[in-house]
Amino acid sequence: MKPAALLLLAALSLSSCRKSGDEVAVEETRPLSTMDESPKLNATSSERFLPPDLQQQMPEMPEAEGNWSYDLPAGWRDAGPRMMREINLAFGEGGEAYVSLSGGTLQDNVDRWYGQFGAEPQAVETLPRIEMLGGEAIVIEAQGTYSPGMGRPAKEGQALLGAMIVKDGRIATLKLTGPADEVASQREAFLQFAASLKQGE
């Protein structure tokens, strides 16, 4: 009887384990309902997550969270305010340079940037460093087809030259993207801009 009881216990313990794979195949659909009528397309995050009275307040808030100062390199120009960008600049015919703040870890953001170029991710420790915002920022470079996301189409022959540093618990990033030859020609300007960049002064 004892072995049988042990077997029963083992079987019940095993059945309590949960297995979860990293991939799940999805084939299920559901019938259409009255809740599928007149859906709202292209709702912004504010429209999706905030009640109407707070949505009205959102555009009034400053896009930038701090006072930024920098030396504008020759050939760069202000590209006007843009959501999620602290500083938004442009260069050449199709290049853009911007500073933004994001969450997560350095490695998360590095992986995301390389992923946008379909490049293999690299460990933060192996990346070169430059001076930026009073510390050592890591430098990320990639070339190829750039998929910026947010519904924007992918572009071929692009390059990325960027820097990231942890500042006050968030990730400050400087990102140059554009045609590969234009980005390559801006390396000195990129280093000069990064060295001049300051916040809260």
């Binding site: 859906p39 292209n42 709702a43 429209e47 999706r48 997550f49 995301r112 519904g151």
Partner: peptide, 20 residues
């Protein structure tokens, strides 16, 4: 390959997210 930025989904949403 990722083809867009991350999106937040929340049950506490007034509307769904749109992707192209």
């Amino acid at each position: 390959q990722p083809v867009g930025e991350k999106i937040i989904l929340a049950s506490r949403s007034n509307y769904p997210a749109t992707v192209s």
